[in-house]
């Protein structure tokens, strides 16, 4: 009798756990749908009055007179993310190759915590570092080098800060990729008389090329969505930037800077939620594409 009671208790508990797990699963699967539909709902107010393409390609940003042109912000976002990726790509690739193919044990033991820590630093601290170090360096050294007299708050400052932020993220993916190449492939190339660098260049990089592309795609989506650190150093001037020494005003910064007043101006909140929606869709797109590349290349092999 006691045994049976015990069993009933056990199975009841099993059922309870199961129900909770199922509920949790359902809730988490609803989150992306809710995110998307919430943002669409909010931005529909603006979209019912103005056309989407007009908003996207107009550079008139005058919330008080109901003009919401996203063009300057989208271009700024592109500038900052692309430049940061240009900085991060060679550094990540070279470091990943160094750490997986050449480095001595002590370098690995040193760099592992360095990368981990870099990945864990909050974005406000990166932003503060940008204000304290990068902005003055650009204003005092890099700017004058190109004959420019600038404050330092610029696309370049945003891109440098951003590149340091996405480096640990991309680097971890790349290291993982390089580690999973079979040693025999490397041995094969070496035994055919290739130098180590030739092996890297002709065989290893080629072997994981789709993975490398997708790592940078994921890095790009990271860069696109990063808010606070970029906002702190990028200048936040509403215009279409034409070079890396000019200030910019990326999309996430637009949302973050104006939340305070968005309820006091008609359609302003709708415009900002549309900005969030665009951000969400762009980031999803990059994520999706990157993962698709991986899946496709796996099928091929």
């Amino acid at each position: 009798m006691r045994l049976r009671n015990f069993n009933i208790g056990r199975h009841l508990r099993d059922r309870l756990h199961y129900s909770w797990m199922l509920l949790v699963l359902a809730i988490t699967m609803i989150v992306p749908v809710a995110l998307l539909s919430g943002l669409i709902y909010k931005s529909s107010f603006l979209l019912s009055e103005q056309s989407f393409f007009q908003i996207l390609f107009s550079n008139q940003w005058k919330p008080l007179s109901g003009k919401f042109g996203f063009y300057p912000f989208i271009i700024s976002s592109l500038w900052v993310s692309v430049v940061s990726l240009l900085i991060a790509v060679p550094i990540c690739l070279l470091t990943a190759i160094h750490l997986t193919q050449y480095a001595k044990r002590w370098v690995l033991n040193l760099m592992h915590p360095v990368i981990d820590l870099l990945a864990g630093i909050p974005s406000v601290i990166f932003g503060m570092w940008g204000i304290l170090v990068i902005v003055p360096v650009i204003s005092n050294y890099i700017g004058p080098l190109f004959g420019k007299n600038i404050s330092g708050y610029s696309i370049l400052a945003g891109a440098i800060v951003l590149s340091i932020m996405i480096i640990p993220f991309i680097l971890n993916i790349l290291i993982e990729l390089f580690r999973h190449i079979p040693t025999e492939l490397k041995e094969t190339s070496l035994s055919l008389g290739a130098t180590q660098w030739q092996t890297v260049k002709f065989v290893l990089v080629k072997k994981i090329f789709p993975g490398i592309v997708s790592a940078f795609g994921l890095g790009m989506s990271r860069a696109f969505g990063e808010t606070i650190a970029v906002l702190m150093v990028v200048g936040n001037v509403v215009h279409v930037p034409k070079g890396i020494f000019q200030p910019g005003y990326p999309l996430p910064a637009l949302i973050a800077n104006n939340y305070g007043e968005m309820l006091s101006i008609p359609l302003y909140d709708s415009a900002l939620m549309l900005a969030a929606l665009i951000l969400f869709v762009i980031v999803l797109f990059f994520n999706f594409l990157s993962r698709l590349i991986i899946v496709k290349s796996n099928i091929h092999n």
């Binding site: 992306p32 943002l39 990063e226 973050a256 900002l272 939620m273 969030a276 951000l279 990059f286």
Partner: peptide, 13 residues
Amino acid sequence: LLWGVPSIVYGAF
């Protein structure tokens, strides 16, 4: 995908 969504979007949501 959710992991890749920027925190500002969560904030706005």
